[in-house]
Amino acid sequence: MTARIEPAARPYDDDMEKTLERLMPPGVEPLVLFRTLARNPRVFRRFMAGGLLDKGTLSLREREIVIDRACARCGGEYEWGVHIAFFGARAGFGPAEIAATVAPGADAECWNANEKLIVRLVDRLHDTSTVDDALWTALKAAFSDEQLLEMIVLAGLYHMVSFVVNATRLPLEDYAARFPRTAA
């Protein structure tokens, strides 16, 4: 499948070169997603300003459950694969957790009770764009308001990222993970 929008190529403007360099580990080319968005510097900068990959109210593992589940539910294999490659091991994901991010339902044995709530939250937001009272009550008993807001915004942000990577048909990064064969 060919990308619908050609990613920006070197030479980038000096400012864009420095920005892209800061985003990636040394020696790793900027993601195709970043280079594609760089075709519109205003959109790229606004997109980067909305990122939530800093130290927030969630643990790295909780954050990655939200992101990976949101991407998986949207069929955003590109972004899911990048996150598994860069953050999966650091988040403590083994094969069971990786598979559970794409598997139907929230009851995988690898998730603890709070992690199952996170998966349920992402699924409910994906399916209905809201959260019912019963789930909200369970979430409020386990997480702070700040954590809940961060999870909701992350789920929405990574739906948007999935829309971009899917609509523009970005080619998968060579080093990124691929959906398990059982993923829908």
Rank of each mutant, 00 (worst) to 15 (best):
46 R>H: 09
46 R>G: 11
46 R>I: 14
47 F>L: 06
47 F>P: 01
47 F>V: 09
47 F>G: 00
48 M>E: 01
49 A>L: 00
49 A>C: 02
49 A>E: 07
50 G>L: 05
50 G>N: 13
51 G>M: 11
51 G>T: 12
51 G>V: 05
51 G>Q: 14
52 L>Y: 04
52 L>N: 10
52 L>R: 15
52 L>T: 00
53 L>W: 07
53 L>S: 06
54 D>L: 09
54 D>C: 09
54 D>H: 13
55 K>R: 13
55 K>G: 10
55 K>P: 03
55 K>L: 07
55 K>M: 04
55 K>H: 14
56 G>W: 05
56 G>M: 03
56 G>R: 03
56 G>L: 01
57 T>D: 02
57 T>H: 15
57 T>L: 12
58 L>M: 12
58 L>V: 04
58 L>E: 05
58 L>H: 06
59 S>E: 02
59 S>R: 01
59 S>V: 10
59 S>A: 04
59 S>K: 05
59 S>I: 11
60 L>G: 12
60 L>P: 08
60 L>E: 12
60 L>F: 12
60 L>C: 11
61 R>G: 00
61 R>K: 06
61 R>P: 02
61 R>C: 00
62 E>Q: 15
62 E>V: 02
63 R>Y: 06
63 R>M: 04
63 R>E: 00
63 R>A: 05
64 E>K: 11
64 E>H: 04
64 E>P: 02
64 E>M: 08
64 E>Y: 10
64 E>I: 10
64 E>N: 13
64 E>F: 00
64 E>T: 01
65 I>S: 07
65 I>N: 01
65 I>F: 02
65 I>T: 06
65 I>V: 15
66 V>K: 15
66 V>C: 07
66 V>Y: 04
66 V>M: 10
67 I>P: 03
68 D>Q: 14
68 D>G: 15
68 D>L: 15
68 D>W: 06
69 R>P: 00
69 R>N: 02
69 R>C: 00
69 R>F: 03
69 R>Q: 06
69 R>L: 02
70 A>H: 00
70 A>W: 03
70 A>L: 07
70 A>F: 04
70 A>N: 05
71 C>D: 07
71 C>Q: 01
71 C>Y: 00
71 C>L: 13
71 C>I: 06
71 C>S: 11
71 C>A: 05
72 A>R: 04
72 A>D: 08
72 A>Y: 01
72 A>Q: 04
72 A>E: 03
72 A>K: 07
73 R>N: 07
73 R>V: 09
73 R>S: 12
73 R>Y: 06
74 C>V: 09
74 C>S: 09
74 C>F: 14
74 C>W: 09
74 C>I: 07
74 C>H: 13
74 C>R: 13
75 G>W: 06
75 G>Q: 08
77 E>M: 15
77 E>V: 15
77 E>L: 15
78 Y>W: 05
78 Y>Q: 03
78 Y>I: 08
78 Y>A: 08
78 Y>C: 02
79 E>K: 14
79 E>Y: 07
79 E>S: 14
80 W>G: 12
80 W>M: 11
80 W>V: 12
81 G>T: 15
81 G>K: 13
81 G>N: 14
81 G>M: 01
81 G>I: 12
82 V>I: 14
82 V>D: 00
82 V>T: 07
82 V>C: 11
82 V>H: 03
82 V>S: 02
82 V>N: 03
83 H>P: 05
83 H>D: 09
83 H>S: 14
83 H>A: 11
84 I>L: 14
84 I>N: 00
84 I>Q: 15
